[in-house]
Design a binder for these strands. Structure first.
Lengths: 229, 229
DNA sequence: TGTACATCAGTGAACGCGCGTTCACTGATGTAC
DNA sequence: TGTACATCAGTGAACGCGCGTTCACTGATGTAC
């Protein structure tokens, strides 16, 4: 107090509140997130939190967008270190970074990709940040198609995958990628998210002996499925 | 009251309690499951529920095992209607049934494959039921290998997939299946679970225009990846 | 078939606890002149 | 540089609510003889 300006102070308190919120995701889970406990953690009286956050749902929203942004930024930065032409390397790096982030922030992963919080509806403000990771993966596939280095881009789409996707959003997410390839890319993304979730939530049982190796192999299988050189 | 025997009555009440529990998974989520609300739903005073269930955690456990058993049974029965030699058909049926079950029981799906309930540790009694679905899928792959109808069963395992899996549990889960193929099967399972989860929790956005068609195509891509004829 | 006793489902009060949110307030920080 | 006023972070009491779990109890159902 004293030494810092009001604006600085506000920023610091806001960060402390988010930090306390994250701690609670771990200890009680999103559904039981408590403003009173947050206040206690930060060293405030319960009503004071309302100077920073309108209500419980708004705090949840802030935690969700922060998580998506943090994950998105990690993946963007990691993937950017690879040569643009190293398609497989970009895929591996992106996938590995997603998994590493999930292991470092298991409760935030659960918040964004786990069960929805009952009674809470995510507002529009979360969809931008949510898109960042998939945009990276979409970019890899789009680059592969553009440089003619995606295997069987338009072929092998059983049961009419072409009509399964919305062409307008496809154009935004993966410009220039034929529907069949886009569907494979989407399926690879489900494999990645599914793998990380099942691993994190302990559903693999004793089958996986070497998690890092198994994941690396799975990631490459998914790349093969998509046709990333 | 009156007409039914004690044993019958007990069974009916137990079922009513589980039913009320399921209703609450939908309305409040697993983390906020409340015995008092269950009691109210069933028409009992709150303390009476303790005649049927030791505590909140035990009710959760019962709901989890019931969900796994219900899902497992659905998939077993659906898959059993196919000719044993129709490998691709068995895979499609199993996958489609998993998704259909999830859509019919979204909150139970969230309970078993979504975020773990904070503070709750699933006891051993849940692992048997949890295994039933994956056992069906494992059986399909094992049959494919046994009849020599799995593509490249031992080949194409980048980054040493062989050492990634535990050979003892592999022998139980998919007897006779080489590690490389088992890893692909496991990855296909993650794709299936990931797809259903992302779809159910609303993470696909506007990209998917025809959900049934997209899923059928994804399911076939996963079968191709595994090498199921 | 009838009686004596054991079992057990359900009651109602109580325990100590935590929650989200509102409101009138104090006192320090910042701003305009 | 100094004063008057506005802003705003934080307080503390209060609202009405719900929770899990325990305990001594009543009365109906079941069992043994």
């Amino acid at each position: 107090m004293g030494a810092v300006s009001r604006a600085e102070h506000r920023e610091q308190q806001m960060e402390a509140i988010l930090e306390a919120g994250r701690r609670q995701l771990a200890e009680r889970g999103a559904a039981a997130l408590s403003l009173r406990e947050v206040a206690r953690d930060v060293g405030l009286v319960s009503s004071a939190v309302y100077r920073y956050v309108a209500n419980r749902d708004e705090l949840l929203t802030l935690l969700i967008t922060a998580a998506f942004d943090d994950l998105g930024e990690s993946v963007e930065m990691a993937e950017a270190t690879r040569r643009r032409s190293d398609l497989r390397g970009r895929w591996r790096t992106a996938g590995t970074t997603v998994r590493a982030w999930a292991h470092e922030h298991p409760h935030e992963w659960a918040l964004v990709y786990g069960s929805p919080v009952p009674g809470y509806v995510a507002p529009q403000s979360t969809v931008g940040p949510a898109t960042r990771v998939t945009a990276v993966l979409g970019g890899i596939v789009a680059d592969a198609v553009r440089t003619g280095r995606l295997d069987r881009p338009g072929e092998g789409a059983p049961r009419g995958a072409g009509r399964a996707l919305d062409t307008a959003s496809l154009d935004v997410a993966m410009p220039g990628v034929p529907p069949a390839a886009a569907l494979r890319a989407m399926t690879a993304w489900t494999g990645l998210v599914g793998y990380v979730g099942l691993e994190l939530f302990g559903h693999f049982g004793p089958l996986v002996a070497d998690p890092d190796r198994a994941f690396a192999a799975a990631l490459d299988e998914l790349a093969e499925m998509v046709g990333i050189a």
